[in-house]
Design a protein around this nucleic acid. Structure first.
Lengths: 223, 223
DNA sequence: TGTGCTGAGACATCGGACGTCTCAGCACAG
DNA sequence: CTGTGCTGAGACGTCCGATGTCTCAGCACA
C-alpha cells in the first residue's frame, strides 16, 4: 500500500481510537510526517483527502484540526459524490427519497414544534403564487429540510440533504416548471403542512408520498 | 481558494460536463498540472482526494483514470465516513436503516428471482444453528445485501451497504451475541425468506421491520 | 508462434526553499 | 489602566527538481 494511504489509515485510526478527539489539533505537518515516517508532501496528500470529506479542517497559518465529526458535516461529502451521477441514476436517487421522505414527514408530525409550523407557514406565504425557478428550488429545499429536521434524526436529515441537494433538484425543476407543476407543488406543500398541524401522522406520510411520486412520475415520462 | 481546491473543482467540472467520461484517462500529471496552472505536487493532492472518494483511479506506472462512477463505487466512500461516528449516533443510523430495509425488502418480494431465493435459503442452511460471531456478522450482511440487491435499486443497495457496513454491525453484534439473540435472528431471517418466497410484500415488510426493531430495542436498552 | 527481455513513460516519494497567513504578545497612545 | 496597532514566530501553501518503482508495449530469440 502506498505511504499516503497508510497515512490516511493511521490518522483515521488515531481518531477512531480516541487518541485524537473532535476539535483536537494535530501535530504540525513536519512533525506528523516524521512520526508517521513519510515526507511532508506525501502527508499533505493524506491530509487533503481527509479534509475533502470533512474529517480534518486545515487552517492556513494556524494548524490542522479534527472537525466536530457531526453526521451533518460528514454526510455533506455525500452531495459532492451525488453531483457526479448522471440523469439515468437520478430516478434511483429519487426512489430512495420516496422511501425516506414520507417516513421523515410522519416522524415530524408527532414531534414538530408550533414555532416550526409557523415558520414553515410563513415561508409558504412569502413565496407567493408564481415564484421564479430559483426561488422555488430554494423554497422547496427549505420546506423539506425544515420538516426533516423536525424528525429529530440528524443522520436522516443530512442524508436527505445530500441525496437531494441543490444540483439534483435544479436538474429536475428545470423541466418541471414548464408544466402546471408549480401550482400543484405549492398546493401539496400546503397539504403537508396542514397534516403536520393536525399531528396526523398518516396524512402527513401520504401527502409526502404523493408529493414525491408526482415528481417521479413526471421525471419518468420525460426521460 | 487554494489552488488545490480549484483543481478539485476543475477536475470535477470536467467530469460532470462530460469532457471526461467514465473510464477515460487523464493527461499525465505534469501536463494536467501545467494546464490547470499549478505544480505537480499540488495537483497530486487534488487527485489523491478524488481518488479517496473513488472518482479517480490512479494506477502506478500506467496513468490516472476516471472510475466507472457507479453509485455502488461512489457510495463506498460512505462507509469510510460512517466509521468515524461514535456509539451515540449509531442509533440514528439504525433508525434510518429501519426505514430503508423494510421498504427494500418489500420491493424485493415482488422482484426477487427463484434463483436468488434458493441462494438465500442455501446460505441460511449452511450457517447452522450456532455460528461464531464473525460468521454471523458476515452471514447477516450477506443475507440482507442479497435481498436489497433484488430490490433493483442500486443506489438503495449501496446506501444500505454504506450505512450498515461491517464495522457498525460488528460493533452491535459484539454485545448482541451474548443474549439469546442469535437464534432469534436466525429465526427472523427464515421468516423473511418465507415471506419473499410467498411474494407477500406486506409480510416481508413487517418481518424486516420486526427484525431491525428488535436490534434497535436491544441497542437502546444497553447504551 | 510463443516466450522473455528491455526501455519508455507514468506515478511514488522525497527534501528543501520560499511565500502567505494567523495569532499571541509587546509597545504606545489615549 | 485600557485599547489599538505593530511585529515576529510558527504553521500551512506552493513550487521545483531528483530519484525510485511500476506497467506495458514492442522487439528479439527460441
Amino acid at each position: 500500500m502506498a505511504v499516503t494511504d497508510e497515512a490516511i489509515e493511521k490518522i483515521k485510526d488515531m481518531i477512531v481510537s480516541g487518541a485524537l478527539r473532535p476539535g483536537d489539533r494535530l501535530p504540525k505537518e513536519s512533525e506528523l510526517a516524521a512520526d508517521l515516517g513519510l515526507s511532508r508532501n506525501s502527508l499533505r496528500e493524506a491530509v487533503r483527502a481527509l479534509s475533502l470529506i470533512r474529517i480534518l479542517d486545515v487552517r492556513q497559518g494556524d494548524g490542522t484540526y479534527v472537525t466536530s465529526l457531526d453526521p451533518q458535516l460528514l454526510l455533506e461529502a455525500l452531495s459532492f459524490v451525488v453531483d457526479f451521477h448522471r440523469d439515468d441514476t437520478v430516478l434511483e436517487f429519487l426512489a430512495v427519497r420516496r422511501i425516506l421522505e414520507p417516513a421523515a414527514t410522519a416522524m415530524a408530525a408527532s414531534r414538530i414544534s408550533e414555532q416550526q409550523l409557523d415558520a414553515l407557514g410563513a415561508q409558504l406565504d412569502k413565496l407567493g403564487d408564481s415564484p421564479s425557478v430559483e426561488e422555488l428550488v430554494a423554497a422547496d429545499l427549505d420546506f423539506h429540510r425544515g420538516i426533516v429536521q423536525s424528525s429529530g434524526n440528524s443522520v436522516l436529515c443530512s442524508l436527505m440533504d445530500g441525496l437531494s441537494g441543490p444540483t439534483t433538484r435544479a436538474r429536475i425543476w428545470r423541466g418541471l416548471t414548464q408544466e402546471d407543476a408549480v401550482s400543484r407543488t405549492l398546493h401539496e406543500h400546503r397539504a403537508i403542512l396542514a397534516a403536520l398541524r393536525d399531528r396526523d401522522t398518516e396524512a402527513a406520510r401520504s401527502w409526502a408520498t404523493v408529493h414525491i411520486a408526482s415528481v417521479e412520475q413526471w421525471l419518468r415520462s420525460s426521460l
